[in-house]
C-alpha cells in the first residue's frame, strides 16, 4: 500500500507552486522529484497492490481491502500474535516495502542495498 499524499494531491501542489511568481533551482528540482513520485506510483502501484493483496490474503487467511488488511496485520504484530518468525511475514514485509521504495525513492541507499541482499535470499524479489 503506497504512502500519502496521494498522486492527485502531489500533482495539485506542483501546479500551485508553478503558478507562483518566482522559483529557485532547488524548488524546481523538488517539484520535478514530486512529479516523478506521482508518475512512478501511477505506473507501478496497480500491479504492486494486486500482489500485496494476495500476500495479505494468504497471511491473514481471508480477503478484504488493502487498508483493512494492513490494519489487521499491524494489530497482529502489535499484539505479538505475529512476528518475524511467522512463516511468510518477513518476505511479505520486504516485498511490500521494496514496492514502496520503487515508487518513492528508487535511488535510496537502503533500497539499493536491500535489493542486492534480497536477490540472494528471495530469488523471486522484483527489481522495482
Amino acid at each position: 500500500m503506497q504512502d500519502q499524499p496521494h498522486p492527485h494531491e502531489i500533482v495539485a501542489s506542483v501546479a500551485e507552486f508553478l503558478r507562483a511568481e518566482s522559483h529557485s533551482t532547488f524548488q524546481l528540482r523538488v517539484a520535478a522529484n514530486a512529479l516523478d513520485i506521482a508518475h512512478r506510483q501511477l505506473e507501478l502501484s496497480p500491479g504492486a497492490d494486486v500482489t500485496e493483496l494476495a500476500r495479505l490474503t494468504a497471511l491473514l487467511e481471508h480477503g478484504g481491502a488493502l487498508t483493512g488488511l494492513n490494519r489487521e496485520l499491524a494489530q497482529a504484530i502489535a499484539s505479538g500474535a505475529m512476528n518475524l518468525s511467522t512463516p511468510g511475514l518477513a518476505a511479505h514485509l520486504w516485498e511490500t516495502t521494496l514496492a514502496k521504495l520503487a515508487v518513492d525513492q528508487p535511488a535510496y541507499s537502503g533500497y539499493r542495498a536491500a535489493l542486492r541482499t534480497l536477490r540472494q535470499t528471495y530469488p523471486s524479489t522484483s527489481s522495482g
Binding site: 504512502d3 499524499p5 513520485i37 516495502t97 521494496l98 514502496k100 521504495l101 515508487v103 518513492d104 525513492q105 535510496y108 537502503g110 533500497y111 536491500a114
Partner: peptide, 8 residues
C-alpha cells in the same frame, strides 16, 4: 514520501 526509506 520519505517514510518508506525508514521502513526499508
Amino acid at each position: 514520501r520519505r517514510a518508506s526509506e525508514t521502513e526499508i
